[in-house]
Every structure is written in C-alpha cells, then in structure tokens.
Amino acid sequence: MSFIEFVEGPFYTVAMTIFLLGAAWRVIGIIRIGRKKDISPPKGSAAAGFFKGNLRHFFPRGIFARRTWLHIVGGYGFHLGLFGLMLFAAPHVAFISERITGFGWPTLPRWGFVITAEIAFAGLIVLWVRRISDPVMRLISDWDDHIGTWITFFVMLSGCFAMQESHVFLRATHMLLVNIWLIYFPFGRLMHAFTFFLSRGNTGATYGRKGMNL
C-alpha cells in the first residue's frame, strides 16, 4: 500500500471514526451532566432564549467594537475563510462526493480559492499573533490554544502547498495532517466548534426565562 493510499484509506477511516465518536462522546458527556430544573415562575420562554442566544452572539455589539474590531475581523475572516475552503475547494468537493455523499456541488474557481485562503490565513495569523503579543492573551492562553492554532495552520498550509495538484506527495502530506487534525479535534479546544451552541444556548435560555431582551 502506498503512502497516499494509506492516508486516504485506512488511516483516514480511523481518524474520521475517532473524530465522530470523540466529538459525540464529549458533547453528550457535557449535556448528560444535566442541570437542575428551574422552578422560579418564568417571564419568558427558555427554549426561544436558547435559539436567540445562539443567534445574538453572532453579532458583536457596537459599543465593544471600537476595542475589539481587529479580533472580530480576524475571527470572522478566519472562520468564514476556513469554511469556504473546507466546503467549496474543488479537490475537497471531489473527495467528499467520492467518499461520503456520492454527489458534488459547485466549487470555487481558482482565484476564488486563492482569495478565500488569503482571508483565512490572514485571520488565523492575526488571531495567533494577538495571542502572543497581548498581555491578557499571554496570561490566559494554554498549550491547547497554541496546538489547535498551529495544527489548523499546518493543515491549511499543506493544502495550499498542494494546490498545483502535480505531486501525490503533497496531497498525501495534506491528508496526513488532516487525519492528525481530526484525531486531535475531540480532545482539545477545537471542540469549541461544537460546544459553542451549548454555551450560548444555556445563557440564552436563562435570559429568555427571565424575559430579558438582550
């Protein structure tokens, strides 16, 4: 079995399984801790608050933006760029349609891919250099934050290295890093991609119950 066959075959299957099971285990584990039923007479709906909380925190408040604009721009740039690349890069769609869904969808043209990647990279770099150069960030960051950032960076970098699609080795390197990323994901802070809705939702539900219109 060649290297590319290994990283796209059995290794990928194992990594994906660990990712799916691990992420599900962790999310379910958090939910299963449970919370006591609130018996104070409600003023509003907790369920509606759950969804509202999730939506509301997508939009930063103007009053804070003057101090946090770079983080907002960097954060959104990186995340939207990453999702754009992950879901609409031509080789990704080909891979997903061949391996998972059986059907494909429209893909980014090359220039679109390049611009999306540039936005994603710029965002990620801004987020990380902020982490190392702000005393607040230096104080609260731990190894998990750095590993998560760097592993994602290397996945993205190896992906853009393979853009010429002329060397199997480069594609295999990218896949290898993707597999490592998938395995690391459920155990580290990358899990915020799944836990954010619980956190926003729980606060939203509490506020919703109190009839707060935030």
Partner: peptide, 11 residues
C-alpha cells in the same frame, strides 16, 4: 458548557 466553549479569546 461554558468551560468547554471558552476559546481564551480575551474579549
């Protein structure tokens, strides 16, 4: 869920 979601963004 709060502890799990915090990404140490410092906001």
């Amino acid at each position: 869920s709060f502890f799990e979601a915090c990404v140490h963004c410092g906001e």
